[in-house]
């Protein structure tokens, strides 16, 4: 079975690198520059996008809206992975702009559980 493609967008390369190391079960593409996300996503065709929120140049909320504007990316699940929500808020299934949230720091199990929940077969 082909690995699910996950696009991880975070301005911190250290974090995206570690995420890729920890989640070999997915085909992970790191992107540290939010302004390049649309272009990369159209080429990569992710099954899910993990999105940081606080980033220079463009915040995650704006980026999510831009992704939704793309016909090809309209139905790609987006999950926010951010330090600005608390673990409790995330567990209470808080959403931002209709997208589910995960709180940093996050455990691998929670991350995998969440990703699998929103992955569309």
């Amino acid at each position: 079975m082909k690995k699910k493609r996950i696009l991880v967008v975070d301005d911190e390369p250290g974090f995206t690198h570690l995420l890729k190391l920890v989640l070999p079960i997915y085909d992970i593409r790191e992107e540290n520059n939010p302004t390049r996300v649309i272009e990369v996503a159209q080429e990569f065709k992710p099954d899910l996008i993990l999105l940081d929120i606080i980033m220079p140049e463009m915040d995650g909320g704006t980026l999510a809206a831009k992704i939704r504007e793309q016909p090809l990316l309209r139905f790609v699940p987006i999950v926010f992975l951010t330090a600005i929500v608390s673990t409790r808020e995330a567990e209470a299934r808080k959403t931002i702009d209709g997208h589910p949230c995960l709180a940093k720091p996050v455990t691998k199990d929670k991350l995998v559980e969440c990703i699998n929940q929103y992955l569309v077969d």
Binding site: F15, L18, L19, V22, A83, I84, A103, V106, T107, K108
Partner: peptide, 24 residues
């Protein structure tokens, strides 16, 4: 709090992933 969260939780997210990797 938001500033603190951003500045502290991001390094902690790295630590969390690092621990995970070392454990795995």
């Amino acid at each position: 709090a938001a500033g603190m969260a951003h500045e502290v939780k991001n390094p902690m997210a790295i630590l969390q992933m690092g621990i995970q990797y070392l454990a795995d």
